[in-house]
């Protein structure tokens, strides 16, 4: 028989197939020697998954951490500026405070070393239909605020 009649990678995969078969036979023998009941039970998988679950799982995106870091940096700076303004102005603050992009950039230029741009660099898996980054970041920022800061934020919003 010439090699052309064999499946691709036949010899490459042969050792693994043999080892796998030996391992399965050893396992069956071991199980039989310990428990005839378990050895004879059918090992059908009782669990199922939604249709095409694995096709969809493989296609979910694991987001590049650099994108998250950029979002994190920008959002945390904006939140920090907002909180700083609230703290400085206290209860006398008007409810229509507007933080401009210039404010954010100025704060960024002055305080960039103090901003922990990596605090939310944990990765997020996103479904194609889901864009939860903003929600996730907002939750994380809010969870870092003190009670006083939260109260102040509540009064302003």
């Amino acid at each position: 028989m010439s090699n052309k009649e064999l499946p691709d990678d036949f010899f490459k995969n042969l050792p693994d197939r043999i080892i796998s078969r030996i391992s399965k036979e050893e396992h069956s023998q071991e199980l039989l020697s310990h428990s005839k009941i378990l050895a004879t039970l059918p090992r059908d998988n009782p669990y199922t998954v939604p249709p095409e679950y694995f096709e969809r799982l493989a296609n979910r995106k694991i987001t590049n951490p650099r994108v998250i870091k950029m979002w994190t940096g920008i959002t945390s700076i904006a939140a920090t500026v907002l909180i700083m303004v609230l703290i400085i102005t206290g209860n006398s603050v008007e409810s229509d405070i507007i933080i401009t992009d210039d404010d954010i950039l100025t704060y960024y230029e002055d305080n960039v070393q103090e901003v922990d741009a990596y605090m939310l660099s944990d990765l997020i898996v996103m479904n194609e239909e889901e864009t939860l980054i903003e929600e996730y970041i907002l939750e994380e920022i809010i969870s870092d605020l003190s009670d006083e800061e939260l109260e102040l934020l509540n009064q302003t919003l």
Partner: peptide
Amino acid sequence: EYFDGDEIQIALI
């Protein structure tokens, strides 16, 4: 809805 086990499979679990 994603579990189809019988009595013996539940017992094993």
